[in-house]
Design a protein around this nucleic acid. Structure first.
Lengths: 224, 224
DNA sequence: CGGGTTCTTGACTATCTTCAACGAAAGTGG
DNA sequence: CCACTTTCGTTGAAGATAGTCAAGAACCCG
């Protein structure tokens, strides 16, 4: 999952779980905290998230970390470059996966339909990452956090008492590392949103969006 | 082209020009300033840059712009998502292109080898963009500019009097929009590098790297 | 219950942006 | 070819945004 532009919000994405002929690796489910693969590992499988949440990360030598993406149900992760993984991947909560052989991506000989699905997922990934560029490079902290919450409510929000409610599966520092901010800035922005009565923080991991319109308004700067 | 991590600098990329059976669209060359495609256009062709430089951009409603990538010789641009282009693309200088039918990416039936090349280019794109995330989200202005110059000298630098020299085909504001900075900050950082005698600014568009080691050192924070 | 982690808040600081001015370069039209 | 205009690059000063450092609060887990 990346933070995309508001224009995409209207039509919530399709999360078709592709069921196909795919024998599974050792185990297709992870406990919270388990690692699926590390940067540098050879890619034998791609995975579609069936339930749970994955976290894809990269680290710089000096310790600075970037969360590249979160993997929510429907997302496909593990695309190889030169046959290798280029991120670490672990599970934030218990997660079930549908594995696909990497060979299905390499060539459509055996299963053209699956090949096409995986290829399109990769291409989608590119365009979603382009959205995320815009966000990382050009948006303020408030815009980033608001955009993040908007995307999250769209993808995993539940209706509770007429309001959208989201359970955040990741820590504040994961959010910070995803948005290119510090944990402190993420915290402060959450607090501001709470004080502006745009969201309510039920508890650390549960956010209720009280004024979705106002939140959406914060995702972009006023266009004169 | 994205700004990648220093670890990739050792091995300069391969710029194999793939020659394959591909009838060409109207014209496979562009004058400086010409537009190749716009965001929202249907994708009929992918293009490999044979010579010249392309610029891929996105704009926000309020006018903020992000340069997504530069297309240097060897790069393949135009990957579709849902069959559409998701960036604008224009030429910074006169540019020659090798067009490939989009159908070659969609399926390998006709030409498995070309299919594989295009697919791998797309996958490479994903991992290069992940590097760029790290840069946009976690690096300081000085680190960004230094990284940018390092990548550029590696890709299009010429040896002149024993020094690497680069001709920048893009404006200061293009660089700023690529790195998530303002033109002023880019200017000031260039000036600092000049005053530190790490680079020389022959003229606005021509930079000589006097101390490549120092430049490389600036691309990352000291790891304690 | 206790110890450790994560979250939150405050005070201060650094970095980068904004605004403004000026100079250089490039394009235009007489 | 030269004056004019426009754009782009550079620099300075001031201000804002987000980062850093530090401390306390809340939460989690054994």
């Amino acid at each position: 999952m990346y933070v995309t532009l508001p224009s995409d919000f209207g039509a919530p994405e399709q999360f078709n779980i592709v069921v196909g002929p795919a024998s599974r690796p050792n185990d297709a489910s992870l406990k919270a905290g388990d690692t699926l693969f590390y940067e540098g590992d050879p890619v034998d499988w791609l995975y579609q998230v069936k339930s749970g949440v994955l976290r894809l990360t990269r680290v710089l030598e000096d310790g600075r970390q970037q969360v590249i993406a979160f993997g929510f149900p429907g997302d496909i992760v593990g695309f190889p470059s030169d046959g290798l993984h280029h991120t670490d991947c672990d599970a934030l909560v218990d997660t079930r996966l549908q594995p696909y052989r990497r060979s299905a991506l390499d060539s459509g000989e055996r299963n053209p339909e699956l090949h096409s699905v995986l290829l399109n997922a990769a291409l989608h990934e590119i365009s979603a990452m382009q959205d995320h560029f815009m966000m990382l490079g050009r948006k303020s902290a408030a815009e980033k956090v608001a955009s993040f919450l908007c995307v999250l409510t769209n993808r995993i929000g539940k209706h509770v008492d007429g309001y959208q409610q989201v359970r955040l599966p990741m820590s504040r520092s994961d959010i910070a590392d995803f948005l290119g901010l510090t944990t402190e800035t993420v915290c402060r922005t959450f607090t501001q949103l709470r004080k502006s009565k745009i969201i309510e923080i039920e508890n650390i991991y549960t956010i209720t969006v009280v004024r979705p319109d106002a939140l959406l308004g914060l995702t972009m700067r006023d266009c004169d």
